[in-house]
């Protein structure tokens, strides 16, 4: 079955940025004009200027609200997500969207739930990174391991990789984590906005690589 391309909040980012920029220009100009008002200005002109200033400030609040509603990376971290649900959703979507099976193994019983601003954004960002791994590095399957690491929930997505592939991964890890073309969410930004960390690890001795997420427990 052919699926439509995934759409997430990041598709709105250029629009929200544009709004912020344009409104900043408008607001700065109106506040500068306010200083230029002559002392003998008519009451009508003064009232109209006050409207422009008040509406510019009001629009600023609306744009902030819009950004927080549309862009997961602008939201404060909150909420709680059972780790099992998150992992299951990721595995299901990776198989359906990318034809990439993930061996889930068994999460140890002491691994707590994680605190997430937006689980859907995290899954979308992970799928973006996994899609690149599938496409650019011919990764055919993954294993997921969960554990507690220094008080954080560590999720490792592991795959076997040869020596040349490990070098190639090292060279392109920044692009892999920051997202690439339109539609691929910036994994690092999403994870960091949730109070977590993400990095790519390579183990030359074991000939394997891993995408490691460290997420705050709920």
């Amino acid at each position: 079955m052919k699926r439509l391309p995934r759409t997430d909040g990041h598709d709105f980012e250029p629009t929200v940025r544009e709004l912020r920029g344009s409104l900043a220009n408008l607001r700065a100009a109106s506040e500068a004009l306010d200083l230029l008002a002559p002392p003998d200005e008519s009451a009508d002109a003064k009232s109209l200027r006050a409207v422009v200033l008040a509406e510019a400030a009001r629009l600023s609040g609306i744009v902030d609200h819009l950004g927080a509603a549309l862009l997961p990376i602008e939201r404060p971290a909150r909420g709680r997500r059972p780790l099992g649900d998150l992992i299951s959703e990721l595995a299901r979507e990776a198989r359906a969207d990318l034809d990439l099976p993930i061996d889930l193994g068994a999460a140890p019983p002491d691994v707590p739930d994680v605190r997430l601003a937006n689980g859907a954004a995290l899954v979308a960002a992970l799928l973006g990174a996994l899609g690149r791994l599938r496409r650019d590095f011919a990764v055919g399957h993954l294993a997921l391991r969960a554990r507690l690491h220094q008080g954080l929930v560590a999720l490792d997505l592991l795959w076997p990789a040869s020596e040349p592939e490990l070098w190639r991964l090292r060279e392109s890890h920044a692009e892999l984590l920051s997202g690439g073309s339109r539609g691929e969410s910036p994994l690092r930004d999403v994870v960091q906005a949730m109070g977590g960390e993400v990095w790519l690890t390579v183990d030359r001795a074991a000939a394997s690589a891993a995408l490691r997420l460290l997420l705050p427990p709920a």
Partner: peptide, 10 residues
């Protein structure tokens, strides 16, 4: 720095 937020924010 002046930022339009989004991906810059963190």
């Amino acid at each position: 720095l002046l930022t339009a937020r989004g991906r810059d924010v963190d």
